[in-house]
């Protein structure tokens, strides 16, 4: 990581602490870096420039500037994530699912066999949001988050832009934190897109009124909307925990598709383990078990114990895998 070293020598001490010098391929890497610098990809070069700018600001003034610098880096990352065509396509697809469910229910109605939660949608549009989330939270949402998370570091490394990103004296820890925030925001956006799409479809297609909870209690519509918010927030935290797993995997490889696949396979594997009755004792330790516990918000009183436990599991996963990502990324040789 000779380019960083060069930058360090001309810049500030705190950055040097964040990016320790690395032994080895000094001249070769430097040569390659200089060669690549002119052709660094369009969007990313902008980000590098911003990160570099952030670094300069960091040096000139103290903490408020540093905060602003991080915010600018986050903004740049979010801009990249939400402008990327595949991410937009995934969000559009997620938004379509509630619409498809709504249209199918409206067109074909329901018979005796359909579960009550489905038939309830026909009676109350608000239920469409919960139904959509309960269907998507097991696979499609984790898939979308896994793509963004798996791509986060490995994608940069694969495109050869990671070096330039680190050229800016922003620091590896800070870059990792920004990536994590980016994944979390995308997860929240994905859940919110499903919730909003479900709400709008429900409002347009079905009557909306007081909501019947799973406990048989009927609550006013505003209470129902509040519960939509709780459910969305809970799901987003669950997705963020998966995002950190993906981030940790992403620091281990330079092949983004490998990181994405590994993240998604982790999800599927957990679900298979969770479905085997003989492995019941393992279930409470799996991330996937707790995603669907958002239905605790649909009980009366709200099952705070179950959901609180779910949040603790999410936090534990985030802590462990965040630490793994940091341990790997902060001490890794960046060769591409």
């Amino acid at each position: 990581m000779s380019t960083v070293e060069t930058e360090n020598s001309t810049s500030s001490a705190p950055t040097a602490a964040d990016t320790p010098p690395e032994p080895g391929t000094g001249t070769a890497t430097r040569g390659a870096a200089i060669g690549d610098a002119s052709v660094a990809g369009g969007a990313r070069s902008g980000a590098v420039a911003r990160a570099a700018g952030a670094g300069h600001r960091d040096r000139s003034d103290a903490s408020p500037g540093a905060a602003r610098a991080v915010l600018r880096l986050v903004g740049s990352e979010l801009g990249l994530t939400f402008r990327r065509p595949r991410n937009i396509a995934m969000l559009i697809l997620l938004a379509c699912v509630p619409v498809v469910i709504g249209v199918a229910l409206k067109a074909f109605g329901s018979d005796e066999e359909t579960p009550a939660i489905v038939t309830q949608v026909a009676g109350n549009g608000l239920m469409l949001t919960f139904l959509s989330l309960s269907m998507l939270v097991q696979l499609l949402l984790p898939l979308a988050v896994g793509v963004v998370a798996g791509d986060s570091i490995a994608g940069e490394a694969n495109a050869g832009t990671l070096r330039y990103l680190l050229t800016a004296p922003a620091g590896r820890t800070r870059l990792l934190a920004v990536k994590a925030v980016n994944i979390g925001v995308f997860g929240l956006a994905a859940c919110a897109v499903v919730a909003v799409s479900g709400l709008i479809t429900g409002l347009v297609m079905f009557p909306v009124g007081p909501v019947t909870l799973l406990s048989g209690t009927t609550v006013p519509i505003m209470d129902g909307v509040l519960r939509v918010l709780i459910v969305t927030g809970y799901s987003a935290v669950g997705m963020a925990a998966l995002g950190l797993v993906g981030l940790a995997v992403s620091t281990l490889t330079e092949v983004p598709i490998g990181a994405v696949a590994a993240t998604v396979v982790t999800v599927v594997f957990s679900q298979v383990i969770g479905a085997i009755p003989q492995l019941g004792p393992v279930r409470p330790y799996l991330l996937t078990t707790w995603w669907s516990s958002f239905d605790g918000a649909l009980r009366d009183p709200i099952a705070t114990d179950v959901m609180g436990q779910g949040l603790l599991v999410f936090a534990a996963y985030a802590l462990v895998f965040g630490a793994i990502a940091w341990g790997r990324f902060s001490g890794r040789d960046i060769t591409s």
């Binding site: 579960p115 009550a116 939660i117 038939t119 309830q120 919960f130 309960s134 799973l214 406990s215 048989g216 669907s292 239905d295 605790g296 649909l298 009980r299 099952a303 179950v306």
Partner: peptide, 27 residues
Amino acid sequence: ALPGQMSETDVISDGKGSAWLWESATN
């Protein structure tokens, strides 16, 4: 209350002479 995945079975006795069995899965 017996909670299930997106469902719940409740037995409620109000102490005034009626008891209810609510099964959300079959509404």
